[in-house]
Simulated assay, not measured.
Amino acid sequence: MTPLFLFRLVLDLLAISLLLTAFAYDWFGNAVHEIIGTSMFALLISHNIFNRRWYGKLTKGWGDPRSIFSRTVTLALLLLMPGLLISSVIVSQTVFSFLPVRSSFTVRQVHALIAYLVLFIAALHLGLQWSMIMRVARQRLGITRDTRVQGLALRGLAVLIAAYGIHSLFVVDVRSKLLMEVAFSFWDFEAASVGFILRHIAIVGLGAIIAHYSLKLLDLYKQRRSPSSERHGQ
């Protein structure tokens, strides 16, 4: 494990942390929100530079279900990011206020819609790398082997996070953002700022869990359909 690899991993985790933080718009205010968003896009540019070889392999390996799933998630994120950036520039009141563009209520709704889509797709993207992240964590913590108790505990924790994430989708009222509906409910940051952060973390956890276990199911599907498996079954 090289220092450059760890540096890239820290940058990626910092980028999704900034994305989460940006959702607390009413807590931090517009100026901080825009600075956080601009910093996140700077990190995403570095992420694409570090992973530029991925683009050269984009046209290959589409026959594997695992590859199809992971590349579809990544491409969806790539397609959403320009929309988030453009809408961010249009609604900007601080960082890009010098540009001759005019915002509107509809554009702000579109910005919120794309932001929540990016949040969930980014969570799926994180889940694609979860096995690698856990492997790095084990190495740093000196854990050499997994026990049955550890496995059961982690699966139980995943179930709890997923359940809390599903519940959070309703509490945060993600539906109204995705449908661009006018919502009259506002989060009380003075009373429950920690709850807001935890619920959005749970939503990210839900997406990561879905992606992580989807890859496991696809790997299982591939093993069962492999020629070697068929020979063993004869």
Rank of each mutant, 00 (worst) to 15 (best):
V174R: 06
F184S: 11
L84P: 12
G151Q: 07
A202L: 06
I86T: 08
R155E: 07
F189H: 13
V159T: 11
E181S: 15
L126K: 02
F105Q: 08
L99C: 12
Q109S: 04
L119E: 03
T72V: 15
F170E: 00
L77I: 05
F98N: 14
G83E: 14
T94F: 14
A115L: 02
F120E: 01
G165R: 00
L113K: 04
K177V: 02
A163Q: 12
T94C: 03
L77M: 15
T106C: 05
L178T: 06
T147A: 14
L84I: 15
I203H: 03
R148T: 15
A191H: 13
V91H: 00
D173V: 08
W130I: 11
Q109N: 04
R175S: 10
V110K: 01
H111V: 09
R140H: 06
I133K: 10
F186R: 10
L128W: 08
Q93L: 09
L79N: 00
V118W: 00
A202N: 11
A192C: 10
D188V: 03
L80C: 15
S87D: 12
A163Y: 09
A191I: 10
L79H: 06
S97G: 06
V110D: 05
L126H: 01
L85G: 04
T144Q: 08
I161G: 02
I143D: 15
F105S: 14
F184Y: 08
T147W: 13
V101R: 03
I201N: 02
Q139R: 10
L154A: 13
S193E: 12
G151P: 10
R135W: 11
V182P: 00
V73R: 04
L157R: 07
L179Y: 07
L157W: 08
R102E: 14
R138L: 04
H167A: 04
L113W: 12
T72K: 09
R66H: 13
F186E: 14
F105N: 06
F184W: 11
G61I: 08
V174M: 05
A76E: 11
A122N: 12
I161Y: 04
I197G: 03
V107Q: 01
F96G: 12
I201H: 05
S92V: 10
H200C: 06
S104D: 05
L157M: 12
V89A: 09
L179V: 15
V101I: 14
D173M: 02
F69K: 01
L160Y: 08
L80V: 13
P65S: 07
M81P: 05
V172Y: 04
R199T: 01
G195E: 04
S67H: 14
M180K: 04
S193P: 15
M81K: 10
I133L: 13
V89L: 13
W130T: 11
L154W: 15
Q129A: 06
V91L: 02
F69T: 02
S168C: 01
L126W: 04
